[in-house]
């Protein structure tokens, strides 16, 4: 009986150690992705960013990419993921400054080229690891770039889990 109890305790300690290690690894992964996590609510706003970036998709929060990514995106707006999204010089300057000022600041992955798609970052993939393949393929979702398909308050910068509703 005593041996059994000891065995149980040993197994219990083992499980605890493994899960503690896993959570340390997960938070390490987050810390290396250039993204701030303040309760998944992003406050920074700018009227031109909201209007121009938010015209074809939601205005993605600047914290979701590091400054060099935003600079690369803003420098190639005439060929923006297959579309011409060019802006006049004034608007481009103001929006670039806003994005740089509020960009993700934590240490991020060292890549040969700046990451241009939020959805290709380690942070994004880790946050969405529980989303089933059939949900991504749902025509109501259409693309991982369509935040608002599941994050019902994404247009307000609120990505908290309470407001996630995966369409069926």
């Amino acid at each position: 009986m005593l041996i059994n109890v000891n065995g149980f305790i040993r197994r219990y300690i083992c499980v605890m150690l493994v899960s503690a290690l896993a959570s340390v690894m997960i938070s390490e992964a987050y810390a290396h992705d250039g993204v701030e996590h303040e309760g998944q609510k992003y406050q920074a706003s700018n009227p031109r960013w909201k209007e121009d970036c938010g015209a074809c998709h939601i205005a993605y929060p600047p914290q979701m990419l590091p400054a060099e990514s935003w600079r690369a995106i803003m420098a190639g707006l005439d060929k923006h993921f297959g579309s011409d999204a060019s802006l006049d010089a004034d608007a481009a300057k103001e929006i670039t400054e806003f994005l740089e000022k509020n960009a993700g600041t934590k240490k991020h992955e060292v890549l040969a080229k700046p990451l241009l798609r939020i959805t290709e970052g380690r942070w994004f993939k880790s946050e969405h690891r529980e989303v089933a393949a059939r949900d991504w393929k749902n025509p109501k979702v259409k693309s991982p770039a369509n935040c608002g398909a599941c994050h019902t308050t994404a247009d307000r910068g609120d990505f908290s889990e309470d407001n996630v509703k995966i369409p069926r």
Partner: peptide, 9 residues
Amino acid sequence: QGKHSETDK
């Protein structure tokens, strides 16, 4: 009302 052909916005 229309819908963006890529993003559905």
